[in-house]
Design a protein around this nucleic acid. Structure first.
Length: 462
RNA sequence: GGCGCGGUAGCCAAGUGGUAAGGCCGAGGUCUGCAAAACCUCUAUGCGUCGGUUCAAUUCCGACCCGCGCCUCCA
């Protein structure tokens, strides 16, 4: 069964290309715009990466692991990374390595499969590719050198510009957007042109590289990295390009312009954009102070797997309002799945009762419907399910059901004493005292869990 | 102002022209001395408002109200 996915360009749900099974060279090429590594990624970033991870997993299940090539880039040279390096007075490479490592650790915690390639924009190999592409655009008359040695893409040279975001149908809000347009208007021939290469400025410090022929030393613009790295690793036409909705314009619009002008062929057969995660009903932002990282949630006692579940609990193409409540719900739901899995026989069932879960995912990545289908089977408890088929859908969703690591909490001596006294009272069948002591423990913030042969203490749940 | 998305039970969230999946919370029960866990049962005559089309609308159409996003380097 083919995977169907909404295509942002044609605005319809349509099947993804199926590579030829007979041709081992024919693989499904999938490029996902990655993070800028200058700070920890926030949970909104991870919504996109988790959704893309489910897509990757689904493709592997559908086509076979060897038939999918997944690339996700790292933006490690841009205004923000350079600013960080300047502010902290350390080399750009140190800064980006630190945050790349953190990103990888967070992805691993969220059980995201590593992409097959993870190219970096500042990698000399890919800097060369970017410069090549800019030179190609200059030769073809799609780009020009500005007075300061920067190079800009000439938007008017590409007739198809704006097809993805339908930017031509929009009218700019006077005041806000127009101001931004004016920022570097001196250097551009036209306000809508965008930078391919940025000439070095003192603020850039030591971060500069030889530019395209005729241009000044400097660094690549943001958009060109994806065009160049995608071409280098996946070829001129790829099967699928994804990212968050905010990348639709201008980033992806500009990528199309660069790639199609340089290569003379279709850039991507399919475009997919996941919607934003909101917090408190608003987009996350530093200025609103509603930005969470994985570490913030860990500090509140939530597991990364609960976040993964919560991020998938809304339809990927709809805004999802994140709340701490949704994390509580996710922890409980995961616990239910854990208990259920323990009841399953290893194998030996003739038909796959979890088919509807995968069907929901294949239908435009409907993750909430997939969870619904999953729990419908779980609740049936008709003995028809086996562990192998359950694990298959868990793989698709990327859910790991390891027992959560209980945070080690020091038990205060007085709490331990109360617990010991209660245990003794219980053994002596002095239930009145035992109950009173349980209340004292609760007041101290502890729950005492009785077993036949002893007890354990846990911090009381809220 | 332009472009786009959304409003479904206490919270979250699928879905369909023919009478509302699922998760969480909550309630009752079984089991435990009690508690916890586990398991069982229950929980929207209703899908923003008002009209229209239809045998039938939450689902289609129109108007309106409310919320959110994007509009040149934010996933």
């Amino acid at each position: 069964m083919a995977i169907k996915l909404f295509d942002s360009l044609t605005r319809e749900v349509r099947p993804l290309r199926i590579p030829s099974a007979a041709d081992p060279q024919d693989v499904f090429s999938f490029y996902n715009c990655g993070p800028t590594v200058y700070a920890p990624a926030h949970i909104g970033n991870f919504r996109t990466f988790v959704i893309n991870d489910v897509l990757r997993r689904l493709l592997e299940l559908e086509l076979g692991a060897g038939k999918v090539r997944h690339v996700r880039n790292l933006t490690d040279v841009d205004d923000k990374t350079i600013k960080r390096s300047r502010d902290e007075n350390r080399p750009l490479g140190d800064v980006t390595r630190q945050w790349t490592d953190k990103f990888h650790a967070d992805c691993a915690a969220l059980n995201c499969l590593p992409p097959h390639d993870e190219p970096r924009a500042a990698d000399p190999k890919y800097l060369r590719e970017q410069v090549n592409m800019i030179e190609c655009l200059m030769e073809k008359g799609n780009a020009y050198r500005a007075a300061d040695g920067s190079v800009y893409f000439k938007v008017s040279s590409f007739a198809d510009y704006g097809r993805l975001s339908r930017v031509r149908e929009r009218e700019l809000q006077p005041g806000s957007a127009l101001k931004a347009l004016a920022a570097d208007a001196d250097e551009k021939e036209d306000g809508s042109d965008f930078a391919l290469w940025k000439a070095w400025k003192p603020d850039d410090g030591p971060n500069k590289w030889p530019g395209p022929k005729g241009a000044a030393e400097g660094r690549p613009g943001w958009h060109i990295e994806c065009s160049a790295m995608s071409k280098s690793l996946l070829g001129m036409t790829i099967d699928l390009h994804t990212g968050g909705v905010d990348l639709l314009f201008p980033h992806h619009e500009n990528e199309i312009a660069q790639s199609e002008c340089c290569n003379g062929t279709t850039f991507s057969r399919h475009w997919y954009h996941s919607e934003h995660l909101l917090v408190d009903g608003r987009k996350m932002s530093k200025s609103l102070g509603n930005l969470y990282t994985l570490d913030d949630l860990a500090a509140k006692g939530f597991s990364p797997m609960a976040l993964r579940y919560a991020l998938l609990s809304g339809h990927p193409r709809k805004q999802l309002n994140f709340t701490l409540d949704s994390l509580h719900a996710a922890e409980s739901a995961l616990q239910t799945l854990r208990g259920y899995r323990a009841t399953l026989p290893d194998a030996g069932v003739t038909h796959d009762v979890f088919g509807p879960v995968l069907t929901a995912l294949q239908d435009d990545l409907n993750t909430p419907a997939a969870f619904g289908a999953l729990f419908t089977v779980v609740n049936r408890k008709d003995g028809q399910a086996d562990r192998a088929s359950f694990d298959r859908v868990l793989f698709a969703l990327g859910l790991k059901l390891d027992a959560p690591v209980a945070p080690k909490t020091e038990i205060p001596a007085e709490v331990q004493l109360l617990a010991d006294r209660r245990w003794s009272a219980k053994q002596a069948k002095d239930f009145a005292s035992a109950d009173a002591l349980r209340k004292e423990l609760a007041a101290a913030g502890w729950s005492m869990l009785d077993r036949k042969d002893g007890y354990s203490l846990e911090p009381a749940k809220k």
